[in-house]
Design a protein around this nucleic acid. Structure first.
Length: 280
DNA sequence: CGGCAAACCTGCGAGC
DNA sequence: TGCTCGCAGGTTTGCC
């Protein structure tokens, strides 16, 4: 899955081929995604013109004519792949195909089916159940140390788990939380409410920087993420701590064989990676 | 409300 | 080769 940078990479790839095009043919091969595919999914979309391909948090937000909005979430393993038209049968995990009026095929593929496709209306988008509780976009100027401080106030959970809560800030996932906390030199074990203004002043720019750099790299490709072209992102080569248990952290000169290097712990049921020497 | 485990589903690598 | 186990970019639900 895709976190914000991966979804943004996919959004950009889709925008190039979809914006201004009309959907000539839509085929749904199975309806049982995380949420059932909407009734009359293909018929509703067929013939409609796509205006813009946007993003909110980890959701793709595709605006079509007449105020119809298609929401897409890639879950853990979802992909949107762009190709020329083919007449081959869909792959085992290809669930939906969208063909445009100029001969482009977009295939939604998701082996684990944790992703979803849903309809919304433009005029009530912010109130849609999937979007209404989302916190601020971390790359917008409004996402400031002060705003994050308010969101974290009173939270006795760890800062790691708090940053994964999409209601507090929207778009971070397991990779970029570990990476941002490393950059800000803050221990993932700290209580959310315990961060000082000074620390929040490091954390917010760290979040913005790591997301921005990851978007520029086309996201991180560990197992599933692909750009719409099928190419790999390459930000995984820039990880400081994620998936690097036992290795030396880039800021430490200490010998990982002696200090244990980067630690892996479990918080909220998910792996956290950090350097105990640099993060407190 | 908070916190945590389990659930959803498939695939892959490690270890035996 | 083949089995089991643990783990995976997410989110929701149910229980205490």
């Amino acid at each position: 899955m895709p976190e914000l940078p991966e979804v943004e990479t996919v959004r950009r790839g889709l925008a190039v081929v979809l914006e201004g095009r009309r959907l000539a043919r839509v085929e749904a091969f199975r309806p049982d995604l995380r949420l059932p595919l909407p009734e009359h999914f293909a018929e509703t979309l067929t013939g409609r013109r796509i205006e813009t391909v946007g993003r909110r948090a980890k959701y793709l937000v595709i605006d079509l004519e007449d105020g119809l909005v298609l929401l897409g979430h890639l879950g853990m393993s979802g992909r949107m792949l762009v190709s020329g038209l083919v007449n081959t049968p869909p792959g085992k995990h290809d669930h939906v195909r969208f063909a445009t009026d100029d001969g482009t095929l977009v295939t939604y593929c998701d082996p684990r089916r944790f992703g979803l496709l849903a309809f919304a209306r433009r005029e009530s988008l912010a109130e849609h159940p999937l979007l209404r509780d989302l916190g601020p976009e971390p790359l917008e100027d409004a996402f400031s140390p002060k705003l994050l401080g308010v969101a974290l106030a009173g939270k006795q959970t760890s800062i790691k788990v708090a940053l994964l809560d999409q209601r507090l800030v929207a778009g971070l996932g397991n990779i970029y939380v570990s990476e941002a906390l490393f950059r800000a030199a803050i221990s993932p074990l700290r209580t959310a409410a315990s961060l000082t203004p000074r620390e929040l002043g490091r954390l917010v720019p760290a979040i913005k920087a790591v997301l921005t750099e990851a978007i520029a790299a086309g996201g991180s490709s560990l197992r599933d993420h692909r750009q719409t072209s099928g190419e790999l992102g390459y930000f995984q080569h820039s990880f400081a701590v994620y998936d690097r248990e036992g290795q030396a952290c880039p800021g430490c000169r200490c010998d990982p064989a002696r200090t244990g290097g980067i630690q892996r712990i479990v918080q909220g049921g998910r792996s956290t990676f950090y350097c105990a020497k640099q993060q407190s």
